[in-house]
């Protein structure tokens, strides 16, 4: 009963602002497209063909690429974020909150400006090429509008989404357990896998989800830092609502994307044993 009461605000909110829009999208995905009017929906002519079109094998490389980029940037976020979160939580001392806010401060400037700054860094005559030239590594590397820039942009953009949940769970780790593990003769690696990892795993799982899921569907990053060979599924869907004028197809692709990611998330959660999420 109490649980229901706590859930009431979220229930009302989601019912109105998430479930209804979701139904609208499902409705779109079963309609007929048009130029003058984007969707023509009738109950008597549900068009499941949109779903068949959405599974067009020509689009497979774009989908695979989205998963690949999201996976790479999630992995990079773990590599960069875990040690940082661990350091802040265990050795940050009384400045822990200050360090934590420092992680977020770059994100108080607009995303677009940060991405734009990355363009300046990565462009052909940009800072990175000049630095590389000064180091004798050549100054004609191509970064911008290629895969490297997109992956970097995604990693940069989602890093706090990894660090903050990791911090929240490392912070409550019992240091005594770590020391007990050493006292019992376990080595560094063994202690990491047997004591540290299990305690922080809820945070790690949350971080992986918060980075990977939005990254798969992202479209602002690939459109600003990517080029002709880095299109991601989010851009393809956005195109359907723009130049390609196929709202039903865009909706069907979104529904399938959501189903696919949800299935993946549930398999993942089951494997890592996180029921609470």
């Amino acid at each position: 009963m109490k649980g229901n009461l706590l859930l009431l605000p979220a229930s009302v909110w989601f019912a109105l602002l998430l479930v209804i829009p979701l139904l609208i999208i499902v409705e779109y995905s079963l309609g007929k497209r048009g130029v003058i009017d984007p969707v023509h929906f009738t109950w008597s002519h549900l068009r499941f063909a949109n779903y068949k079109d959405a599974l067009d094998p020509d689009r497979l490389p774009i989908f695979v690429r989205s998963i690949e980029y999201a996976a790479i940037s999630t992995f990079a976020c773990v590599l960069l974020g875990f040690p940082l979160a661990y350091w802040i939580a265990r050795f940050g001392g009384r400045f822990r909150n200050v360090y934590l806010v420092l992680v977020v401060i770059p994100f108080l400037t607009s995303y677009l400006i940060r991405i734009y700054a990355w363009q300046v860094i990565l462009q052909d005559n940009g800072l990175l090429n000049r630095l590389s030239g000064d180091l004798g590594l050549g100054s004609h590397h191509v970064f911008l509008n290629h895969a490297f820039a997109v992956n970097l942009g995604l990693t940069y953009g989602f890093l706090p989404f990894m660090i903050l949940p990791l911090y929240a769970s490392i912070e409550r780790m019992d240091v005594a357990l770590v020391e007990a593990s050493y006292d019992l003769g376990h080595g560094k690696i063994s202690t990491f896998f047997r004591v540290i990892l299990p305690t922080v795993s809820p945070g790690l799982v949350a971080g992986v989800l918060l980075v990977f899921i939005p990254a798969v569907g992202d479209f602002v990053t690939p459109s600003l830092l990517g080029g002709v060979r880095t299109q991601m599924i989010g851009s393809t869907i956005a195109d359907q609502f723009g130049g390609s004028q196929n709202w039903p197809l865009g909706s069907a692709m979104s529904v399938l994307l959501m189903l696919f990611i949800l299935a993946g998330v549930f398999v993942y959660l089951r494997r890592v044993g996180e029921e609470a999420l």
Partner: peptide
């Protein structure tokens, strides 16, 4: 779902 009907009209 507005456009459904408007599309019908235009068609």
């Amino acid at each position: 779902m507005a456009f459904a009907s408007a599309a019908g009209f235009v068609a």
